[in-house]
Design a protein around this nucleic acid. Structure first.
Lengths: 244, 244
DNA sequence: CGGGTGGTTGAATGAAATCAACTATGGTGG
DNA sequence: CCACCATAGTTGATTTCATTCAACCACCCG
């Protein structure tokens, strides 16, 4: 199976074999990181671009009171703001959730890639725009959805994104989230998330494990959430083309 | 006074007089739009890039139930996702709040600008990254701030952004918001916003009019909100250089 | 075996929405 | 000019929702 990064970009724009080779080469420098490891902190000077090759990560902020808000989840193929290097300091932190393989692409190499391969530049653009769309959808969820819908919506989004990059099959999608993390993502307390999550289980949408959570009925979950995937802007790959 | 668009970009990166001339030329086609006028709807095919030259606008989504969530506010100098044209359909709507002068830059002209003037491309990038930072900050507010902090934080952000583009002086910043709009932005009901806003008035931070709202004490408001402006990533202009 | 983390549950408190009534204002048409 | 209506804002009473607090279980790991 190809690099998850390539795999994801393919979902947005055509990637030639030359593009692919260059991407693979750029991702050569990668490390295996443990779970709960911070790649970069708010306030730090931005460094290279991080690309998640396997595992899960997230971006988040800690408030003065100590509470945490997870802003977005990163899965294989995702990268942190490509050109973040133009900014003086990070306005958020990025950390792993599970053990993860992450590549670091130096800034200059990234810029070269963009200049030399317009097709890649376009794919990057696309990806950035989709990321912004995800942020907008998150704002809508937080502002105007009920807590149950909110949880369901987040899980739906993650399922769809997993499918788009081919790391989820049709049924029984497993996610490595503690309820505490889920709470930090949807802006609620862990105990309330617990009650919601069991309500979803009672409805037959989920199964619960310790530190994991299994989507049993995505259709039902989508229905509860009022989920529409238009904001994920997938174009090229279709649901049917499961294999590479 | 120069085009607000130019003015804003200057805050992020150097803009030469040639850059400026090109920008001015690109903004030649502009229209005066009434208040509450939708520039584009969710589901539409993206058209040209919109640039706000004067007045206020916002991006928003309407949920199936009819409730609205304002995602972000647009003020003079702001534009909607530059390269949104690569996406197939809009995942949100954009509408004016007040009467507004807005320029439309055709997609091809935009792309030419970016290719011909790397300095502008960089300024655009910067601006996009800042916009993403604003979205992230909004998510944090919605998730982990109290309702009072949330309202105060939004108002602070808008004040700072207004200052950055030079349309706000030191004191008494006027904003053309009904409490209903404010409610749609912070994800609360109008009646609750009302109570919060009067609490802020009682504290001496605000003054209230019908359809407007005046920031009387930004320092106090910042303190209530726990506001830090690092995520706005302003670099070049300093608070002192008020005049062009 | 003891301690830590994640999860579960109930009771009490607090926050926000809802419902409802009412004021003030500006615009419109008779 | 006035009657009428629509919109924005205000206020109180009530209900719903989520947090807080607290206790407890299960499990893994040292």
């Amino acid at each position: 199976m190809a690099n998850a990064f390539v795999e994801k970009l393919r979902g947005y724009a055509p990637v030639s074999s030359l593009d692919e080779a260059l991407l693979e080469k750029a991702c050569v420098r990668s490390r295996k990181l443990p779970a709960d490891y911070d790649l970069i902190h708010e306030g730090d000077r931005p460094g290279p671009v991080f690309v998640i090759l396997s595992g899960w990560a997230c971006s988040y902020k800690i408030l003065p009171g100590g509470s945490r808000q997870i802003i977005s989840f990163l899965m294989p193929g995702d990268f942190c703001d490509i050109h973040v290097a133009v900014l003086a300091e990070m306005d958020h932190s990025i950390g792993t959730i599970t053990e993860a393989q992450v590549a670091t692409i130096p800034r200059d190499q990234m810029e070269e890639l963009v200049e030399v391969r317009p097709s890649l530049a376009k794919a990057f653009w696309w990806s950035q725009l989709v990321d912004a769309g995800v942020l907008r959808a998150t704002i809508v969820s937080m502002g105007r959805r009920t807590s149950l819908e909110r949880v369901a919506h987040l899980l739906c989004e993650l399922c769809f994104r997993m499918r788009n990059i081919g790391i989820a099959t049709e049924e029984s999608i497993v996610m490595p989230f503690t309820q505490i993390m889920l709470a930090d993502a949807v802006g609620m307390t862990p105990v309330h998330v617990n009650r919601l999550v069991r309500k979803l289980r009672a409805a037959g949408a989920l199964e619960l494990g310790v530190g994991t959570l299994i989507i049993a009925d995505l259709k039902l979950l989508s229905q509860i959430a009022g989920f529409y995937d238009n904001y994920l802007h997938r174009r090229l790959r279709t649901r049917q083309s499961a294999t590479a």
